[in-house]
Design a protein around this nucleic acid. Sequence first.
DNA 1: GAGAAACGCAACTTTTTGGTTGCCTATATC
DNA 2: GATATAGGCAACCAAAAAGTTGCGTTTCTC
Lengths: 107, 107
Amino acid sequence: MPSAEAAAPLFAALADPTRLALLKRLADGGARPIVALASGSALTRQAVSKHLAVLSGVGLVARRRKGRETLYALRPERLAEARAWLDEVEAQWEDALGRLKAHVENP
Amino acid sequence: MPSAEAAAPLFAALADPTRLALLKRLADGGARPIVALASGSALTRQAVSKHLAVLSGVGLVARRRKGRETLYALRPERLAEARAWLDEVEAQWEDALGRLKAHVENP
DNA sequence: GAGAAACGCAACTTTTTGGTTGCCTATATC
DNA sequence: GATATAGGCAACCAAAAAGTTGCGTTTCTC
């Protein structure tokens, strides 16, 4: 159950369509260099590199240097942490609804 | 299955600890006016009001005017949409892992 | 009906973010 | 060894975000 302070940077990293697209492309399990991820992205290689740095900064992707290229791969554990926060709030909501219902039926 | 363009604004609204705290407080099912939400928040009422406007803008909370006060309430459906995007990527990841394993076992 | 409470609107300031361009380094490849 | 490829680094720019202050409007409450 991540705190708000811990979860916010994670959501911030997810708050960009380019980065979401990058994560989705990496969800096939493969590790790719920047050029491969930049191709088709309409953006500069530098821009993509910056986005990957943001994702790497919060641990959503892992970077590994291999020769002259830098490979990026998805880290689904971190995705799960973001989901955990949402789950927690939804659970709290469901619980509150349950209490309300019980109270109405059994006043 | 929300697209990246649809999910990004949702995550952007979640990318702030103050807003996450507001959502969590609203997860008990209650609808509260701004002053109640601003108390204890260290921020100005205006700042909290702006944050609520952001949340309302993406549909994460509902606003309803009641007399002189504006009541805010959580809308968990939108939370579920954010989760759906994460689920989708994780499912894609699991699927890729499954294929890889199958390929190794049955080459 | 006078004062207070709750809020909206608008202007302004300061950071942060997304993006570009230019240049330099390291590694392949011929 | 010369050249092309893949990236990192730094400066710079424009737009958006976070927050504040001030002021006006509506609605309670006495």
